[in-house]
Design a protein around this nucleic acid. Structure first.
Lengths: 252, 252
DNA sequence: TAAGGTTGTCTTTCACATAGAACAACTGGG
DNA sequence: CCCAGTTGTTCTATGTGAAAGACAACCTTA
């Protein structure tokens, strides 16, 4: 059985894992990387499969191989996406006041699936507004947002409003937003979102699902957010408070 | 179809396209869907390929097929269960009071890498205690924890302590824990953690990195946690507070 | 120079993906 | 009732993914 749900070829999964590790700087360019036989044993695959993955990495310019000598990771280089600028980019987003571009890909009224109906607290099949947006910074997409809103709430604004203003601002024109519930998880990029986020199918994405409640306790919005982990992370501070943790701050 | 070199099997690409269309309500449940031959012509694939996609859709409960009669989409509300156990198991963990087993895989003093040194606030190469644990519930592993502690802190307890008590409890015997910083992201399962978490290589994992500070502001502990997204999610409540979100509660 | 390790290249074998085709079993409408 | 249309089933054939192994070419080091 394929737990991942995506029937990606073995060599491609090995490639994705190794590429992630090389890009993280996990291999010192001055130290010989593990040999093909060793990788094959680690991954429990044949050497041919490892070789296919390594050939792809070499074409990407991420590693250097030489017969008899071994395989070496390339130096991170100037444009290296180290883990430091992870935080950097998040802080940029916040301090710059979210200087990002938003592209509206879909905006339609659709019948609610069972899952969406459960999130919004409507009956399955009820008409709901679904909008899909991609948010970018400097032309690079980093988040993929799918939003569902009950029909009566959605009718208060149109497609143009959504392309310009944040949805939350639109909602707050008519509603008192009280609280939200978030579930954070991870998921693989599928064929739909991968090109929109400019990642490969099978790449790891941060998955945040949020329900927004108004003052009456009604769900007025459900958001499914997918983030590129190399460009966006979720940061939380916790304070120790009598044997328990309580949160201190989160993003907005 | 898509000849962009994507390594997804054809039948799976057809499945993804059709699933999206069915979920969007594009097929009236009262009207016969196009026949297998017609789909094959539309997608420019063989009928066998179309049939595999349709079989998957039928297993998902999204369509109904009958020999001689045809294929019909099911009513929008009748979608497959799919991701219910996400929330289910998490609630189990909390209500059962975290009835989990912990297995200590590694317990060693190692020289700090540059990355770990940065997290702990020590010089690179300094000796630090590294422990790797896997936490399971009912025999199923759901989290993989790598912990680093400065040497002088780690010397206060031994391997046996760690196998029994939570690390935080051990630390609080001698320290005043003040706060923590968490970074939440996503990462692919590599050859090391995949077997320990009983997932496939290349599966998506939830990645939480935590720095724990004592009252003096020193980093006492750094934790790298990997969670199986099908068994564990991170939940946060937010309250709307004067145009901003502030957190309400988190896990501990 | 010699030895051992590393990547490059070539087998063989098996399983699966896909195409193309024919036929069987079944349904609904004229 | 019969027939056209639909899904179910079973063939053949080809290409790719993958494992396992053997050997060649090459580099580094003792």
């Amino acid at each position: 059985m394929d737990e991942a749900g995506l029937p990606l070829p073995l060599y491609h999964r090995v490639y994705l894992v190794l590429r992630q590790q090389v890009e993280e700087g996990r291999f010192d360019p001055a130290v010989k990387m593990p040999g093909e036989h060793e990788f094959a044993a680690d991954f429990r695959v044949s050497r041919i499969t490892v070789r296919r993955a390594l050939e792809m990495l070499e074409r990407d310019g991420l590693i250097r191989r030489k017969r008899g000598a071994g395989t070496y990771a390339r130096a991170p280089g100037a444009a290296a996406p180290q883990r430091d600028n992870l935080r950097g980019l998040l802080e940029n987003l916040l301090t710059m006041g979210l200087r990002t571009q938003v592209r509206l890909l879909e905006f339609d009224y659709v019948p609610a699936t069972a899952e969406v109906a459960g999130l919004l607290g409507v009956v399955p099949g009820a008409s709901v507004l679904r909008a899909v947006r991609v948010r970018s910074t400097e032309g690079v997409p980093f988040s993929h947002l799918t939003t569902w809103v009950p029909e009566d709430v959605g009718r208060r604004f149109g497609r143009d409003d959504m392309a310009e203003k944040p949805l939350l601002a639109l909602l707050e024109q008519h509603e008192r937003i009280a609280r939200a519930e978030q579930t954070i998880s991870a998921i693989l990029a599928d064929a739909t979102v991968a090109p929109r986020l400019q990642v490969e199918i099978g790449a790891a994405l941060l998955w945040v699902r949020r329900q927004v409640f108004n003052a009456e306790g009604r769900v007025i919005e459900a958001i499914d957010s997918l983030y590129r982990p190399d460009l966006y992370t979720y940061q939380i501070g916790l304070v120790r408070d009598g044997g328990l943790w309580s949160p201190q701050s989160a993003d907005s």
